[in-house]
Computed example of a mutant assay.
Amino acid sequence: RTGGSGGAVLFFRHDGQALRGQAGCPAPGLDPHRGRQAVTIPPGAHPATGGAYTWRVPPWDVPPPPIPHWLAALLAPAPQPMPPRRMAADRAPGVLLRALHAVCDAPAGMANTTLNARAYALGRWCGAGMMDMAQARDTLLHAAQRRRIPLNEARATIRSGLTAGLRNPRPVMRALP
Rank of each mutant, 00 (worst) to 15 (best):
Y120R: 11
L100D: 15
M82E: 12
A45W: 00
G7A: 06
G129R: 08
Y53G: 03
Q80A: 14
G50R: 10
A134P: 01
A78N: 11
G127H: 02
M131F: 04
A38N: 11
Q37D: 13
P107Y: 07
T139G: 10
I41D: 00
G51S: 03
G4C: 09
A27N: 05
L74P: 00
W60Y: 12
P169H: 02
L71F: 05
R147I: 01
P150F: 04
V39W: 04
T114F: 02
L140F: 10
M130Q: 13
S5A: 12
S5L: 03
H101A: 12
R159E: 15
G44H: 05
V57H: 06
A27L: 11
T114H: 00
L10Q: 10
L176T: 13
M82Y: 10
G4Y: 06
P77M: 08
V62S: 04
A106S: 11
P68Y: 04
A143S: 15
G129A: 06
L176I: 11
N152Q: 12
N112D: 14
C25M: 08
T40H: 02
R91P: 00
L100F: 15
Q135D: 15
Q135R: 13
L19A: 01
R146G: 00
P32W: 03
G161Q: 01
N116G: 14
R167F: 02
W125G: 00
A23F: 02
P169Q: 11
G127Q: 06
L166Q: 12
V39Y: 01
M130N: 09
D15S: 09
R148V: 13
D132C: 10
I158R: 01
P79H: 09
A111D: 10
A106I: 07
G29I: 08
L71V: 14
R124V: 08
P107M: 00
A78Q: 11
I67P: 03
N152G: 02
P83G: 04
R85M: 12
C104H: 07
P81H: 07
R137N: 08
T157Q: 01
R148Y: 07
R56T: 12
P77L: 06
D61Y: 07
A89S: 13
